[in-house]
Design a protein around this nucleic acid. Structure first.
Lengths: 150, 150
DNA sequence: TTCCTAAATGATAATTATTATTAACTAATA
DNA sequence: TATTAGTTAATAATAATTATCATTTAGGAA
């Protein structure tokens, strides 16, 4: 499922998860859903602060943790020791730009099928595979331009 | 290159990197090289403490950081907000066991070639790919047994 | 609509993980 | 052996996250 778009969708999903649909939760989720740069809790806090000065950093941490437990969002793997988040829960991979520190979403159904097929043919015992993501370590050639994948 | 094995090899590699081959560095590197479970700095500190009570935690952090900068070891991607390390720098992937919290090394040259070939045929602009790793999210079926991959 | 209460929040303290500082130590070169 | 730039230990400081608790509130029942 892709990230939730509207207030009603978010509200409904929260209720389905047995969670109260508070204003803070809606704001935090919307902020993350609009962010494609896999922000930290602190990033989100700074982002919502101008329009929501009373939401505390502790609330942001607590709320993100609640969302992760409810599978509304995912944590992103990183190696910098800071937890980052992703509202886009549909299976996808990430491109880690070494020089710009960006983490870019990357999605390719064909490649997924290729890898899954290969792993199925491999004899792996005592393991149940849930998800496969690629970690593509790369460098942006021109820092000012966007990465383009076709 | 696989992880370094002997005192002499470690000593030589440190010198090649313009680093002094101190006792602390040798001990920390050896500890990591023997660990296949991608330990944290704290894990390594606890591990070496019995035989090296005077090596401080700050030294362990500093030394690991130095090793990473010198490409002697790598950081492992994780989503728990704690930095983990890997002495095995040869390109490989990881299996993340959701239920046991283990991170298991996984290596398959054929699969690597398959993915690299696929991505080369894909039109990716403004990006220079350096390394591709799989993040396999899985569950151990029988927690007490080992995972086996053929 | 009102009442009720379990869940949620804000403020802040506490904890955990990591880095900075600085005096003292030492690896390795001359 | 002497020298010194690099390294370390101890500890303070910082950064990231979680715990605590009084107060607030979403949403269901009446």
């Amino acid at each position: 499922m892709r990230y939730l778009n509207t207030y009603i969708e978010i509200k409904n999903r929260l209720s389905e998860c047995g969670l109260k649909a508070t204003h803070q939760r809606i704001v935090i989720y919307e902020c993350l859903a609009k962010s494609f740069n896999h922000p930290t809790a602190e990033n989100i806090y700074e982002s919502i602060k101008p329009n929501n000065p009373s939401i505390s950093l502790a609330t942001v941490y607590k709320t993100l943790d609640t969302f992760v437990s409810a599978h509304l969002i995912h944590k992103v793997f990183s190696d910098d020791g800071i937890v980052r988040y992703d509202a886009y829960t549909h299976p996808h991979s990430h491109i880690y730009c070494i020089n710009t520190k960006e983490i870019i979403d990357f999605e390719d159904e064909n490649l997924n099928r290729l890898i899954q097929g290969y792993l199925k043919r491999k004899k792996i015992k005592n393991l149940k595979i849930k998800d496969i993501q690629l970690q593509i370590l790369a460098e942006k050639v021109n820092i000012k331009e966007k990465v383009s994948i076709k």
